[in-house]
Design a protein around this nucleic acid. Structure first.
Length: 156
DNA sequence: GCCAACGTTGGC
DNA sequence: GCCAACGTTGGC
């Protein structure tokens, strides 16, 4: 069974358009156990919302998919990387990444607009204080986001 | 095992 | 830049 997910990225660092340009990318730098465990649960082909955080405004920019399952994130072993984790040993890697690929760009939906979507009332993304950079969505929530974007695009 | 201190995230 | 929320660390 395919699951649905949401990835956050700061567009100044890596935007949906960057992913579309590159074709695929290892989702590096996740240093939170809950987020890591969600990535470990991902299967190739799972779809995900690409969310722009720390943006003006923040919101949803596209749909991507899991192109390769979780494996050790190489940046944890690279002393020059800002994601370097000296406590993680190659024999027992602590952090994983998945490889993602673009599916399609969405007509942008801002965080404010997401808050007004009834289907998202329970969504973790909108919960106060939520800082998870990778999280699961129900299929219902995923569809509601895409549908809202399509409606917004039609209205122009 | 508790909890204070600290670091990070992310909206504003 | 500020601040609230939350995760992690480390002393005890």
């Amino acid at each position: 069974m395919a699951s649905c997910w949401l990835f956050k990225s700061e567009p100044d660092v890596f935007s949906y358009d960057d992913l579309a340009r590159k074709g695929r990318e290892g989702w590096d730098g996740v240093r939170n156990y809950q987020a890591r465990n969600f990535m470990r649960a991902m299967k190739v082909g799972d779809q995900a919302i690409f969310y722009h955080s720390q943006a003006t405004p923040p919101g949803v920019a596209g749909v991507c998919k899991v192109a390769k399952a979780a494996e050790p994130d190489p940046t944890q072993f690279d002393p020059k990387s800002k994601y370097y984790d000296p406590a993680s040993k190659p024999a027992d890697p602590r952090w994983d990444w998945v490889t993602v690929a673009p599916v399609r760009k969405l007509s942008f939906v801002s965080l404010d607009e997401l808050r007004a979507v009834p289907e998202l009332r329970e969504c973790r993304l909108l919960a106060k204080g939520n800082r998870l950079s990778v999280m699961p969505l129900t299929e219902h929530e995923f569809r509601a986001i895409v549908a809202f974007s399509e409606q917004a695009a039609r209205r122009g």
